[in-house]
Every structure is written in structure tokens, then in C-alpha cells.
């Protein structure tokens, strides 16, 4: 006991101090400094210039498009994620490992390749290009392409968040619900969903952050048509390439704020529902 209470010997104290300094230094250089730079650069010419560059038609269109893409792709990924997690956590079947690998595929494939695949499939010269052209359906260089690419990129977030949780929770409670007379939907909404709600929300947050921030895949299928197919990250890049630094960083601040907001909501949830989340820990049933 007394050994634990005693101060560590000074070489260890120094070692601990150095490690702490290293961690803080690393975080400052690689996380805080860039974040600060974004805001400093955006406000370099004053608040007025900042606000007016955000208020430009193209910027507003980019914000609207980004929100639209997220509003479509996030719910679809929630549906897919819950279904895939259910399948992975509750059933044994042939090819389960393969399905798991497929769910992870977007993590391992370069986003540029993901975008390119859609161009090869749906582009004018792609496999389905002629058919789509004949029926006057535009996917590539249009909003559907952006949505498809974003769905693909964000596919693993919800599923990967839920699978380990659902596996560790097991199916006992769901079976109990069935034996007590619950139908399939009753079981899902009264037992399954409440048990995974925080993990699901967490997955949705990550999914949303990525959906709004995705650059590579979206860049390939976008075609960079200003005011029509440029999302916020693309708008940042275009402005930067046009030497409009204030404009680029102004839009970038919005993305940074989104990241901070995501972090804040996540922290708030963990704080506000801490005991309920704790009750979710394995063995807490």
C-alpha cells in the first residue's frame, strides 16, 4: 500500500513528464495548429470578408448539396448498417467472413478508386453508360453519382460500430421478447434498437462526418460543376486552386466546425447518458 502511495522516484517522474510533453506537443503540432490555421486564415481579411465569401452563391450551393448528400446517404447507411450487423451478429452462414470483408472494403480501397469504379460503371463510356444515356438518366457528374460514391465510402461506419456490440450482447434478450409474445417488429423496436441506440448514434455521427467531409471519391464523380456538383470539400479545393485563400479557408471553417460539433455531441451524449451507457457494458445485464 505505502509503496503505491509514495511518489515515484524522480527518474520515473521525469520520464512521465517527458511522455506527457511529447503527447501534448504531438497533438498541438498535428491537430490544434492546423485547426487554428484554418480559422486564422479564414479571418485574415476580417469578419466581413469571411462572411461574404461564405455567403456567395457557390458556397451556399455547396453547403446545400453537402447537406442533401448526407441526408440521403446517412439514413440509407443506417438501414444497411443495422441489417448487415443483424445478419453478422445473429446468424451463422456460408460466406459470413466474406461479407465481413466486403463491409470493410471501403476502408481498404482508396477513395479515388471507389469513385473511379462508379465512373466505369455509370459514366458515358461505362458499362451501363449507353443504357443510361438512352433513358436520359445522369448519374456521373450529377447528384446521384455523389450520393452513390458517398454511400460506398461511408458504408462500414454504422455496421462496424454495431457488429461487435450486438455480438457481445447476444440474442438472449431478443429470444426472451419472442417467447414473451413479441412479433418481429416489436422485438426490434422494443428490445434490439434500445440496446444499440448509443452505438447506432455514434456510428451515425461518424458516418455523417465522413459523408460531409469526403473528398476523393466525390471528386472523381463530381465533374466539378460549380454550383451544381461541388460539395464543400470540393469547393474548398477549387477556391484554393484559384488563389482565393480566404474563401477556401472560410468554407473550411464550416467543415472544421462540423467536426467540432460532432465531437461535442458525442461527448455530450457520453456525459448525459453516462450511466445508461455504462449499463450497456457487457455483463451489466
Amino acid at each position: 500500500m505505502s509503496r503505491l502511495d509514495r511518489q515515484p522516484p524522480w527518474p520515473r517522474r521525469i520520464g512521465r513528464g517527458l511522455l506527457g510533453l511529447l503527447a501534448v506537443g504531438f497533438l498541438s503540432v498535428f491537430l490544434l495548429l492546423p485547426l487554428a490555421v484554418v480559422f486564422v486564415e479564414a479571418l485574415r481579411q476580417g469578419v466581413h470578408a469571411y462572411l461574404s465569401s461564405i455567403g456567395q452563391h457557390e458556397a451556399l450551393a455547396a453547403i446545400r448539396l453537402t447537406l442533401l448528400v448526407a441526408v440521403i446517404s446517412v439514413p440509407l447507411n443506417v438501414l444497411f448498417g443495422v441489417a448487415a450487423a443483424w445478419l453478422m451478429a445473429r446468424f451463422e452462414f456460408r460466406g459470413k467472413a466474406l461479407l465481413g470483408a466486403f463491409i470493410d472494403l471501403p476502408f481498404s480501397v482508396s477513395p479515388v478508386i471507389s469513385g473511379l469504379v462508379y465512373v466505369l460503371l455509370f459514366g458515358a463510356q461505362g458499362w451501363f453508360g449507353p443504357w443510361l444515356g438512352a433513358h436520359d438518366i445522369k448519374i456521373i457528374f450529377a447528384v446521384p453519382g455523389l450520393v452513390l460514391a458517398t454511400i460506398f465510402i461511408t458504408l462500414p461506419f454504422v455496421a462496424r460500430e454495431l457488429i461487435p456490440l450486438m455480438q457481445s450482447q447476444g440474442s438472449d434478450e431478443e429470444e426472451a421478447a419472442r417467447v414473451l409474445g413479441a412479433g418481429g417488429w416489436q422485438m426490434f423496436f422494443r428490445v434490439t434498437l434500445p440496446n444499440i441506440r448509443w452505438a447506432l448514434l455514434y456510428g451515425v455521427l461518424l458516418c455523417n462526418a465522413r459523408a460531409m467531409g469526403e473528398f476523393g471519391a466525390v471528386s472523381v464523380v463530381s465533374g466539378h460543376i460549380r454550383g451544381l456538383t461541388t460539395t464543400m470539400p470540393l469547393e474548398v479545393e477549387m477556391r484554393y486552386n484559384e488563389y482565393d485563400y480566404v474563401g477556401a479557408f472560410a468554407v473550411a471553417t464550416l467543415l472544421a466546425l462540423l467536426a467540432l460539433l460532432t465531437l461535442a455531441i458525442k461527448t455530450l451524449l457520453e456525459w448525459r447518458y453516462g450511466d445508461e451507457i455504462a449499463a450497456h457494458a457487457p455483463g451489466g445485464h
Binding site: 438472449d172 434478450e173 429470444e175 426472451a176 421478447a177 417467447v179 422494443r190 428490445v191 434500445p194 440496446n195 445508461e276 449499463a279 450497456h280 451489466g284 445485464h285
Partner: peptide, 11 residues
């Protein structure tokens, strides 16, 4: 049915 680990609805 009473499960071995009770399977109470934790929420």
C-alpha cells in the same frame, strides 16, 4: 422461459 443469464431487458 427463464434464461440462464436471465436475459432481462437492460434498458
Amino acid at each position: 422461459l427463464v434464461f440462464q443469464h436471465y436475459a432481462l431487458f437492460r434498458h
